[in-house]
Design a binder for these strands. Structure first.
Lengths: 256, 256
DNA sequence: TAGTGGTCTAGACCACACG
DNA sequence: GTGTGGTCTAGACCACTAC
């Protein structure tokens, strides 16, 4: 490629149709890397080609490939490790266990937790959920309810909705074998990588449906956390409603 | 400066003692820019010198100065505007009004809000607060209580603690004249820029102290939000306890 | 037209990990 | 030692803003 490339005539920009043509080169490269990830060329935990290899492959300078990788690393899609290489992020890595779980014990450090599935069935979702998951009319969903224990205490009750078609073979046993790490299970067994989520929090009073499983009194305060999670291309693939007992724990957030 | 600079012999690295010596050049430049900001050389809303000017001033290449600025822009300390220049972020800018307020109406867009101070006095803080604000023994604090209205509804009750020495002259009138924008007031009148905050959330039941001002029933569920805010050098300068009514609003959070 | 940030390149060397 | 990412430089040109 010429040194002073005109705005958008990168050799690959015109060669691939599903990549935006009028964007900086490094964004086009970023999109191409994302496509390879989405298509499974490199799987979670894998090392991707080096910066120079990618630069050659895409016909750009190493600095441009680097910038694309930088963005993806900043979004936690890739992980750079000096001297070793660049890797596809995985929810099974230690460092990611708490990326989507903001609950912390009031005093002290992160606690290990364990999950206990109390219900798991295929069912017809309410209309609002079908909309959020962008299901086709009549498409079924999987409903899973589980308890998270922090130490000995039942702390979280989750009601998790997944599109049934995408997760054929989903089972309570499979889920539990991943020690409560839903996204690890989905990634390893179904090839679905969760990248991003939105949460909406409210304070509510415990109803019998929550009080029973959690072993607390009806009318006790609960933190209700509604989550929609997205994979590649901003596709929603999970809707979850959690109820957190916040007597000895809190939801931690950083504002920047 | 020579082309291949040895790890850390930048001309300014050795010249200034309060900047870490063993760090990449661009981090040293970042620290120097931060120092100028902290010392007030450039104030919120000001344009800072161009990349090339900063590069010359600090004896590095434009690319290195650029990278330092990039980091500060990513942290919302600076704001870049193509063709115009780079500016010091200000809490009085529109775009920053909701940077530290995650409460959203359940349906629809961001709502304008207004603040109403119901108490404002100098007092001796509880020990835990004195510790969080790193006050010297016996040092006084300012306690402010205020209500935030979203539309016509009383939605938030805040109890705000500030170190009295740093905010001499703080008044309910001054605060209210900034339309509920505490950080705008602190920035404009006291030269304190809030950069970052930590929040800890719990679900609680309304006590009479909260139910009264908010006009709700005792025992209603409230979202309790404890915040510690930091200015330059990770200095805590505000501790706040908020009670959010979440019947028609929710706390919104993005997980990456 | 002049000045700003934004993109892209090419090449050098450093720091780190692993065999 | 070899290969990886990390830092730094120099220089070119593009895109946007304001005068």
């Amino acid at each position: 490629m010429s040194n002073q490339a005109p705005p958008n005539e990168g050799s690959m920009a015109s060669a691939s149709s599903d990549v935006p043509t009028f964007a900086p080169l490094y964004r086009q490269i970023r999109a191409l890397i994302l496509r390879s990830l989405k298509e499974g060329e490199w799987r979670p935990g894998d090392m991707i080609p080096s910066e120079t290899e990618l630069a050659t492959r895409f016909g750009v300078s190493q600095g441009t490939a680097r910038r694309a990788i930088d963005e993806l690393a900043a979004e936690n899609v890739l992980v750079r490790r000096q001297g070793r290489g660049t890797f596809v992020a995985s929810h099974l890595q230690r460092v990611n266990q708490f990326r989507f779980l903001k609950l912390r014990p009031d005093g002290g450090d992160l606690e290990p937790f364990s999950g206990k599935v109390i219900e798991c069935r295929r069912t017809r979702p309410p209309a609002s959920l079908a909309r959020q998951l962008r299901l086709r009319p009549g498409e079924a969903a999987i409903l899973t309810r589980r308890i998270l224990q922090f130490g000995p205490e039942d702390t979280v009750l989750d009601e998790i909705w997944l599109p049934a078609e995408r997760f054929k073979g989903f089972s309570a046993e499979g889920f539990e074998s991943y020690q409560g790490l839903l996204y690890g299970y989905l990634e390893a067994e179904f090839g679905v990588q969760m990248l991003r989520a939105e949460e909406r929090l409210k304070a509510v009073l415990a109803q019998p449906e929550q009080a029973g499983p959690l072993g607390i009194a009806v009318g006790a305060p609960l933190l209700q956390v509604e989550r929609v999670s997205f994979t590649y291309d901003e596709q929603p693939v999970e809707v979850r409603r959690g109820f957190y007992v916040t007597t000895r724990h809190h939801y931690f957030n950083q504002l920047g």
